[in-house]
Simulated assay, not measured.
Amino acid sequence: MAEAPLDLPRVWVEFTDPADARQRFRCDLTWLTSSWTCIFGAGCRGIYADRPDDGCCTLGAHFTDKADRRRVAAVVAELGHDEWQYHDLGTATGTKDDWSEKEDGARKTRVVDGACIFLNRPGFPAGAGCALHQHAVLTGAPPHTLKPDVCWQLPTRRSYRTVELPDETSYLEITITEYDRRGWGPGGHDLDWYCSGSPEAHVGREPVYRSCAAELVELMGQAAYEELVLRAEAHLAAVKAVRARGNRALLPLLVHPATLEAERR
């Protein structure tokens, strides 16, 4: 299996947000209990075959709002030449136009030499990878507090919709699921490789809900995350029971197929 099918069977759980009774979470346990992990620099092929060292940084990152952009601007002011390969270019005039640009009316990180301006290329003394992420590690800050929203959320996706009930009441539904190829829009189908569905990336030591705990708390809130943990643990206990009975026919209904394929390999 090259990648898991986009419309794979999924196990969903729903619960009311402990912090706000007017909204409910709808969480994809198939994704959140999978063994996906970021393998940048450790086998990642990149989204384009001719740029394997870029990971998913080739296209740059669109900002969600002004606060997202201001957060990155604050980090730009802290980055040194020894941390950021494109420091001189990204600070040439001291404005956001040095390190960001507009595309179809939306502001995003600037693309330089074929990839995001914040991506340090192989051979840079500080090492290849996102300068923002590396700065977070260097200073002891959680990486998601310094990077653009889309960068730290991938490949988990949060979306919203209003659910209308028969009694003419409604609630806000917040979905937490896998950011698969379709999350990139129509062009997502043209990516040469994508990690969330690839067995090559399902080699983490912890399930996603644990390895990405900080990001999920940011997306959901602490109380809702704790509710998710209870349900994810129960789901893993059910998977363990199925495995113990040797009933492997049920596993594709309970476990992400890329995780199963990674185990088989």
Rank of each mutant, 00 (worst) to 15 (best):
A237M: 12
H235I: 12
G221P: 06
L230K: 13
L228S: 10
N247L: 00
K240C: 03
L230R: 00
M220N: 15
L230F: 08
A237W: 01
A213M: 12
A223R: 14
M220Y: 08
E226Y: 08
R248C: 04
A223P: 04
L228P: 01
L228G: 08
V239Y: 07
A224E: 12
N247T: 03
V217S: 06
E233R: 08
L230H: 07
A237I: 12
V229I: 09
N247S: 12
A244C: 11
L230Y: 07
A214I: 10
R243L: 03
A241E: 06
L236D: 10
H235P: 00
G246S: 00
H235K: 03
R248P: 05
L236R: 08
H235V: 03
A237H: 07
V217C: 13
M220A: 14
A244R: 02
A241F: 02
H235N: 08
A232K: 09
L236H: 13
V229A: 09
R243E: 09
R245S: 05
R231D: 11
A223M: 13
A244Q: 07
A234Y: 06
C212Q: 11
R231C: 02
M220W: 09
A237P: 03
M220G: 13
A234L: 07
R248E: 05
V242C: 01
A244V: 03
V242M: 02
E233I: 10
R231T: 01
L230W: 02
V229T: 08
V242S: 00
M220Q: 11
H235A: 02
C212G: 12
V217M: 06
K240M: 11
A213F: 13
Y225D: 14
A224Q: 13
A234R: 02
Y225M: 14
A237R: 10
L219W: 07
E233T: 08
A224P: 11
V217N: 06
N247I: 02
A241P: 01
Y225A: 13
A244M: 09
A244P: 05
A224L: 14
L230I: 12
L219A: 13
L236M: 05
Y225V: 09
A249T: 01
K240R: 03
Y225R: 14
R243F: 06
A232M: 08
M220V: 06
G246P: 00
A237Y: 04
L219V: 09
V239H: 01
E226H: 15
V242G: 03
A232G: 01
R231A: 09
K240W: 05
R245Q: 04
R243Q: 02
V239D: 05
G246M: 05
V217E: 00
L216Q: 01
E218W: 12
N247V: 03
L236S: 10
E233P: 11
R243I: 09
E226N: 11
N247P: 03
A241D: 00
H235F: 09
V229M: 13
A232Q: 04
C212S: 11
G221A: 15
A249K: 03
L230S: 05
A213Q: 07
R231P: 01
